[in-house]
Simulated assay, not measured.
Amino acid sequence: MAITRVFRNGNSQAVRIPADLAFDRNDLEIERVGDELRIRPVPRRLDGLLGKLAAFSDDFMRDGRGEQDQAERDTRCS
């Protein structure tokens, strides 16, 4: 467990996050749970996904996936 210090930044309290624990994004959410603070990346929005889906051509999979072998399923109940 790393130990760090808090400092003042204007009217806010700030915490230095050691480099080996640094996040790869700038948008973080923080919540208090009892006497702990939990910091985690803000969940990514679907905007990027929609852009990637829009990049597919109009004829993408027009002919379907083709013939595919189906694996035998185990029909025994557990």
Rank of each mutant, 00 (worst) to 15 (best):
A2W: 10
A2S: 14
A2P: 01
A2M: 08
A2E: 13
I3R: 10
I3C: 03
T4N: 02
T4V: 12
T4R: 04
V6A: 09
V6W: 00
V6R: 04
F7M: 09
R8V: 07
R8D: 05
N9W: 05
N9P: 02
G10I: 07
G10L: 08
N11L: 11
N11V: 14
S12Q: 10
S12E: 08
Q13R: 11
A14W: 07
V15Q: 05
R16H: 08
I17C: 01
I17K: 01
P18W: 05
P18V: 05
A19G: 09
A19F: 09
D20Y: 13
L21C: 10
F23Y: 12
D24P: 00
R25V: 15
R25P: 01
N26L: 08
D27T: 07
E29Y: 03
I30D: 06
V33D: 05
V33N: 05
V33L: 07
D35M: 06
D35G: 08
E36N: 15
L37H: 08
L37D: 02
R38Y: 00
I39R: 01
I39D: 02
R40G: 06
P41D: 03
V42D: 00
V42K: 08
R44E: 13
R44F: 03
R45F: 03
R45P: 02
L46H: 11
L46C: 05
D47T: 05
D47P: 00
D47C: 01
G48Y: 05
L50D: 09
L50P: 00
G51F: 01
L53K: 07
A54G: 04
A55Y: 04
A55K: 14
S57Q: 14
S57R: 15
D59N: 12
R62P: 00
R62M: 15
R62T: 12
D63I: 04
D63R: 09
D63V: 06
G64I: 01
G64Q: 05
R65E: 13
R65F: 12
G66W: 01
G66E: 02
G66L: 01
E67A: 13
Q68H: 14
Q68S: 14
D69P: 01
Q70E: 15
Q70Y: 11
A71D: 07
E72F: 07
E72W: 08
E72K: 14
R73D: 15
R73I: 11
R73G: 11
D74N: 15
T75R: 13
R76G: 02
C77S: 13
C77F: 14
S78N: 13
